[in-house]
Design a protein around this nucleic acid. Sequence first.
DNA 1: TCGTGGTGCTTTATCGTTAAAGCACATCCG
DNA 2: CGGATGTGCTTTAACGATAAAGCACCACGA
Lengths: 354, 354
Amino acid sequence: MGKIPAHRSAVTLRDVAEQVGITASAASMALSDSSRISEKTKTLVRAAAAELGYVPSSAARALRNQRAGAVALIVPNTTRHVFGHSYFMHVLTGVSSVANDRDTQVLVSTNSDEANGLAAYERVMRSKSADGAIVTSAAVTDPYVERLSQSGLPVVLIGNFPYLPDSITVGIDDVAAEAAITRHLIQVHGTKRLMHVSGPLDHQTAIDRRDGFLAAVAEAGLLESSLVIEGDFSEDAGWQAVRSLGQGIRDIDGIVFANDDMAFGGLEALTDQGLTVPGDVAIVGFDDFGLSRLTTPSITTVSVPAEDLARVATERLFDIIDGVSDGPAHQHLPVSLTLRSSCGCVPKGAQPHR
Amino acid sequence: MGKIPAHRSAVTLRDVAEQVGITASAASMALSDSSRISEKTKTLVRAAAAELGYVPSSAARALRNQRAGAVALIVPNTTRHVFGHSYFMHVLTGVSSVANDRDTQVLVSTNSDEANGLAAYERVMRSKSADGAIVTSAAVTDPYVERLSQSGLPVVLIGNFPYLPDSITVGIDDVAAEAAITRHLIQVHGTKRLMHVSGPLDHQTAIDRRDGFLAAVAEAGLLESSLVIEGDFSEDAGWQAVRSLGQGIRDIDGIVFANDDMAFGGLEALTDQGLTVPGDVAIVGFDDFGLSRLTTPSITTVSVPAEDLARVATERLFDIIDGVSDGPAHQHLPVSLTLRSSCGCVPKGAQPHR
DNA sequence: TCGTGGTGCTTTATCGTTAAAGCACATCCG
DNA sequence: CGGATGTGCTTTAACGATAAAGCACCACGA
C-alpha cells in the first residue's frame, strides 16, 4: 500500500518550500497559481507538495483568511423529539453534498449545553468555527434562533418562519400541501366526516398543516362534520388521538394526520379496535421520510423533498457567505402526493416491488 | 435589505484586555485562572468578557494549541448504502452527546471525493480540522481506512476489523449474536430447514453473521438441510433471495436474514407468494434500527446498541487524544434479542403499544 | 545612458491566542 | 540591610498561511 509515506509530524508549507529551495511565501503563491511565479517553480512546488503529502492547515488558513471553511448544521434540541431521525438524515445528506462540492466541512451542532447562557450553536458561530449555518426545524419561538438570524451572520432556515420576516428561509407550502391531500381524500375517496390530528401548535409547520386541512374541508362544505385534535408529531400521539374518541371513531371516515409517525400510531389504534384501513377509515400522513412505505397498509402521504430543501438552503447559504444577496428571501419547493394503500388508491399488497 | 449589524467585527481578547486596561496576554491568563494574576483583575476580565460577549476564536486557538477542538465522524460512502440512515443517526447521536460534554465540535465527513487522490476524510485529518476520527466503515478492505488507522492519528473504528489488528475498535460479537438468534429459531420454534440470507461477503459483518448462523445450524445437526444465499443488505436483496428459490421456498421453515432491511424484503416476497409469517415460515432480522418494529408482522431481531457503540468509541477516542492509552484495543458491547411477531413469539397485533 | 517596466523572488506583517521569559516592585529572612 | 523569594503584570515569540510591499535583475525604448 503506502503510496503516501507515513508522516511523523504534519507537513507545512515551509517544508515544501525548503525542498524546492524557496520561501514559504513563494510556495504559497506558486500553489495559488500566481502570475508572479515562474512556471518552472510552480511545477517544482506542486511536485514537492504532492510528494510530501502537503495539506494546508485549516486553522492557519481560517485565521489568516478569516473564513473557517465550514458550515454548521444546527439542530435545536427540541427537534430530536419532534421530528423523526430520517428527516434529519435527509437534511444532512443534502447539506453535505453541496458543502462537499465547495470543499467545505460540515459541522453538526445540537444544542445541549446552555450552561453559560449561550446556546451551543451560538458559540459555534461566534467562535467562527463556521462561516454560516443551516438551521433546521426550530420552534416558532426559539429566542436563540431569532437572535442568530438577526445577528447578521449568514443563516438560512429550513421551514417557514413568518415571525422572522427578515430571515432567509427555504421550505414547502404546508398549507397548500395539506389542503391538497385533504382534497384527495374528499374528492377521490368521497370521505365526508374528517378528522385532523395536528402537530404541536407552537410549531409553524403544525399550524400551517392544520390550516390547510381546514381550508380544504371548508371549501367542500364539510367543516361541520370535521374535527381537529392536537398531537405532538409522535407515534403515540396518533394512537392517543384515535383512542380519545372512544366509539366516536366509528363516525369518522377519513383521518388526515399531520405526519407519518402519527398516522402509524393511528393505524395501530384503528386496527386494534377492529377497524380496517382503508375499508372503514381512509387515512393519510405527511412527510414520506421512510416509515410510510413500510407499514401495512402503506400510508398515502405528502412527499417532502427534505434533501432538496437542504441542498437549496445550503446553496443559498454559500451565496450569502460569498456576498451574493439576490434571490428571494423565502423560497418554497414543490411537493408531491405519494398515493399508497391507506387511502384506498393502491390495493393492499399490490404495490410494485421496485 | 443590507443593514450593518452592531457586531460587525468579532470581539477579540484584545478588546477585552483593552477595556480592563491590560494586555491580551494578561487577559488570557486571567481567563485561564492563572495564579500569576490577581483576583481583582480576574474578576474585571471575566466581567468584561461577559459584557462584550467574547468567544475565543477557534482558529487561533487551534493554531496556537495544535488542537482543533473537533472530532470527525467519518462515513465512507459505501457505508451509507450498506447500513441504513437510521444506523447512522444513532451513531451521530452517540458521538454528539459525548463530544458535547467535552466542548468539542463534531464534523461529519461523508463523501470521499477522490479528486486529488486523497479521500475527503483523509484531508480532514491531514488538515488538522479534527483531532481524531470515529470511522464507521463496513467494507473489509477500504485502503483509505487502513491508511488512516495506520497513520498514527487518533482513530477509533466502529465494527470489527480483524485485518487491522493494531487499530482500536468497538463493536458487537456478530458471530455470537447471529448464532444466538438462529438457536432461538431452532430451539424455541423448532425450525429444521433453515436459510440464511447474508450480506455482501466482502464485509466483515456479513461474514461474521453468516459464520454465526452456520455454527448454530451445525451444532444442531441441521447443516445438511440449510442453505446460504448472499445478498447485499438491501431490501431488494431479501426479496430476490426468497424469489430465487421459486417453489423451493416452501421447503424452508425458517429464514435468518443478516439485517432487517432484507428481512422486510423477504417478508414482502413471502406474503406475495401466499405464505404466512410466522405460520408457514418463521423469519428473523438483525439490527433493530427502526424498521423491524414497524412492519406487519413486526420482525424479531438482534438489537444493536448503535448509540452506545458510538458513545463508547468516542470516549475511547478522547482517551487516545489525551494520551491515555489503556483499555482494550478491541471491545465488544453486549446485544439483546428483541422478540416480536415474525418468529412466532408475540401474537400478531398483540405487542403492547408503548 | 538613463529611466521605465516587467519578472521572480524575499521580507514583512497579520490573523487571535497563549506559553515562556522578562521585569519592575514589594516582602521576607538571616 | 542585602540577597532571595513572590507577585502581577508586560514583552516576546510562535502556531501556519498569505496578502502586500520590497528589491534585485534584466530587457527595452528613447
